[in-house]
Amino acid sequence: MSELKTLYQEMILDHNKNPRNFRAMEDADRSVEGYNPLCGDHYTVYMKMDGEMVKDISFTGAGCAISKASASVMSAMVKGKTRAQAEKLFEQFHQLVTGEVGGENHIEELGKLAAFSGVSEFPARVKCAILAWHTMKSALEAKAETVTTE
């Protein structure tokens, strides 16, 4: 049960139930689809840039709690950040869920992302957690192809 609690933390359950920035964006500069067909996790990430800054970001779609909460937290954290900051968050999140993060201090720096530290104990679920992040990164790079993490 303890391992399970680290996966399904209160914050993850909350973001799954009440996802932030969960809407289509009609005046988006770009939108990218993220789809893991084996799981069925399927999202679209919308983004509006102002120079190097992510002025607005939102998402729509459906999937498991881990993927949806991850998309929600991603959108909340990336909004208002510069491209470089968003890319750094992407790297940090990736390291966190694949278990590559070092000491506790490092985890504390991650703020809300730390809620996803339990994912690394569930290798089959890593692809769920990183889907929206990879989709966001593709949007930053203004790519058009559908993203998959399976």
């Binding site: 049960m1 391992e3 399970l4 996966l7 399904y8 067909p37 084996l38 799981c39 069925g40 999937g63 498991c64 709690a65 881990i66 569930f122 089959a124 679920r125 769920c128």
Partner: peptide, 29 residues
Amino acid sequence: GVHAHDVGTIVDSEGIAVRTGHHCAMPVM
């Protein structure tokens, strides 16, 4: 209200093996 993969992970923690996903039958889903 719960995605199949979340169901699968939670019952697995109780030692129960069920399969989750589209079962290689996407048109059925």
